[in-house]
Simulated assay, not measured.
Amino acid sequence: MTRRRRGLSEEERTLWATVARTAVPLRPDDAVEPEAPPAPPEIDAAMLASVPPAETTGAPAARAKPSVPPLSPIERRVLSRVARGTLGIDGRIDLHGMTQHDAHLALRAFLVSAQLRGAKTVLVITGKGFRESRGEPHLAHANLHAAHFGEQERGVLRRRVPQWLAEPGLRDIVLGFDEAHRSHGGGGALYVRLRRRREPVR
């Protein structure tokens, strides 16, 4: 549907006639040609290489992961004092006969609990394994476990426990560890030194 044009009123015609009389026509010589915009410079590879990379905005900067505390060997004088009994053992756990899964869980729970109660040195008993046992009682005990867990479980905890203690997930708890004195099990046990528990920041 087309809209009908409205005609000018008498007042509008008078106003338009007044403006037309005062207007000065533009002469062709006075006309100014608009300047053409300058051509953009050609972009070559060298110019692109000189442009610094754009900074990304909006994405939060990735937070640096906190460094994992390193393990420290137990000092000789500390080992000597523990072996002589002048430095007490604050707790012990016997992993003998456990499967790897159960031993791993039990070890972690024990270390967390020991640190919470302020323990500094604990004893972790792994056992020497069937092949390194000596004496009839040890052989009978080892044969019983060998029959239950199979040949592959013989001495596995002795190899695995040091690996677990060195895991990054336990570095906030474990300061260091070393083989125990023969009075505490020798090659079948480990002294573990614990870090002081950090108080939460409020």
Rank of each mutant, 00 (worst) to 15 (best):
G85D: 02
D90L: 09
I89H: 03
E132M: 11
R134A: 09
R108V: 14
T86V: 10
L144K: 12
A142P: 03
V112S: 04
A146C: 00
R154Y: 01
G129T: 08
L165D: 03
L105P: 00
R131D: 10
A119I: 06
V122W: 07
G85Q: 03
S133D: 13
H104M: 12
R160T: 05
G169Y: 01
F110K: 08
L87N: 04
V82D: 01
I93P: 03
Q100A: 14
A147N: 01
A146M: 05
Q163W: 06
E151D: 06
R92C: 08
L111P: 04
R160G: 00
R84C: 02
R117F: 09
R131H: 11
G91D: 08
Q115T: 04
G135P: 07
V156R: 10
K120N: 03
V122D: 04
P137H: 13
H96P: 04
Q163D: 03
Q152G: 06
H96C: 08
S113R: 15
L79M: 07
V161T: 02
R159K: 15
I125S: 02
Q100H: 13
G91K: 11
R77H: 05
G129R: 08
T126C: 09
R81F: 01
V122F: 08
L157F: 08
V78I: 08
A103L: 12
G169S: 04
G97R: 05
V78D: 01
L144F: 12
P168L: 02
Q100T: 10
L144P: 00
N143F: 09
I89S: 05
R108K: 15
S80V: 01
F149I: 00
N143D: 11
A83H: 04
F130I: 03
M98F: 15
V124L: 06
H96N: 11
R81L: 12
G85N: 07
N143M: 14
R160I: 04
A119S: 15
A103W: 14
V124K: 05
M98G: 01
L123H: 05
R84T: 10
L144E: 12
T86S: 15
T126G: 01
V112G: 02
E136I: 14
G155D: 05
A83M: 06
L111Q: 03
A83T: 01
G155E: 02
G169Q: 01
A109H: 10
H141E: 09
V122H: 06
L139F: 08
V112Y: 10
E136D: 12
H138M: 14
H148M: 06
G97A: 06
R84G: 06
P162R: 07
T86N: 11
